[in-house]
Amino acid sequence: MDIVDAHCHIISADTARYPQAPIGGKQSAWAATRPVTAEGMIARMDQTGISQAVLVQATTHYGYDNSYVLDTTRAHPDRFAAVGTVDPLRDDAATLLKTATGQGRLAGVRLFTSGSTVPTQGEWFAAPETFPFWEQAGELRIPVCLQMRLGPATHHLVELLERFPHVTVLLDHIGYPDITTSPATAGQDVAALGVHPGLHLKLTHRNLEQLHNAGDQATDFLTPVIKAFGADRIAWGSNLPAAEQSLPQLRTLAEETLAELPERDREQIFAGTARRLYPALAASAA
């Protein structure tokens, strides 16, 4: 099967050229204990049979310095697309976004509003100060990866999607829905967001592990979500090396969990969606 990894991270061994600058000053544990370089990522992809990948800025290691993902993508344009981190609260955020994206530059951007080093869900991503950024993202047709947790802040996401319906938003890890407690309830909550055409889902090990453990009940989550979004708005990402498993193990987890889906749906989730979101990958594959 043709596979594009829509969410992985790289960290250089050259700390002089690419120094640490994590957002909030706190480095994530995985970045310190199991970093993977660009060369290491290519080797793992070749071993696993993954043709292309989207390099998502390691925000908890490099912060807003996107140099490493950009340099890597320029060196290997046939294998990678780069997603960098920007600060949408800056007065010049819209201008910065336009400058940072385009041919040979960032193919997308990421807003890190919650995660292992930021346990409290931020609401700043929907502040009025960010509206010029969102407007520019829509005009440029630049995908915005949003790392957030569904819950109290979900209404802010909905407000953004309604205000900027032409913006493409990728919800990292599907917003961490609580599949373990109730696959059906989690599926209904996520499916309700499918009415917003610009919203896409990034399916990673953080969801797939829970779905795998749910056994037959995994369909209680997958069925309504795929019906609401369609497979062409869902992309698989390994989250390597934030995920502790090896890349072959992460591919196997995804394939086994999604094995009952129709072949076309699996083709979209594993490659088609990512290539539509990041046309440079499609051009290179062709």
Rank of each mutant, 00 (worst) to 15 (best):
T99M: 11
A218P: 09
G230V: 05
G122M: 05
D172H: 08
V167Y: 01
G104T: 08
R163D: 05
M45L: 12
D232K: 14
T15E: 12
T180L: 11
I269W: 06
R90V: 01
R264L: 13
A218C: 11
H173Q: 10
R266Q: 14
V69R: 06
I179T: 02
T113C: 15
F125N: 07
L55T: 04
S116R: 10
T120C: 07
T252Y: 11
A29Y: 06
I142G: 01
P241V: 00
A31P: 00
S12H: 03
A285C: 03
V4Q: 00
S12R: 00
S51M: 09
V167E: 00
P88W: 02
P241C: 05
R90T: 07
A184S: 13
P262A: 07
I11M: 10
P241H: 06
Q217F: 10
T223C: 03
P224M: 08
P224K: 05
T113G: 07
A231E: 04
G187M: 08
A186D: 10
C145I: 13
L250E: 09
T181R: 15
L203V: 05
Q103I: 12
P119L: 01
N207V: 09
I269D: 00
H166Y: 11
V36W: 05
Q217H: 14
T85K: 07
L171Y: 09
V69S: 02
A82V: 04
T73W: 00
F80L: 03
D178H: 11
V195D: 11
L111N: 07
I269Q: 02
V109C: 00
A126T: 04
D178R: 10
P143F: 00
R163Y: 05
A38G: 15
T99D: 13
V225K: 02
G24R: 07
P248S: 08
S12A: 13
F112L: 10
A184H: 12
F133H: 01
D87Y: 05
P248I: 06
M1F: 11
R206K: 12
R251V: 15
T113D: 10
A184Y: 07
H196Q: 02
F270R: 09
E162L: 11
I226Q: 03
P19G: 06
D178N: 14
Q210E: 14
R17A: 13
G187R: 04
D265A: 15
Q57N: 06
A107H: 03
L250A: 06
T37F: 01
N239A: 13
A286H: 12
L140M: 12
T95Y: 10
Q52M: 01
P197Y: 07
T223K: 14
Q147C: 13
Q20L: 11
P35E: 00
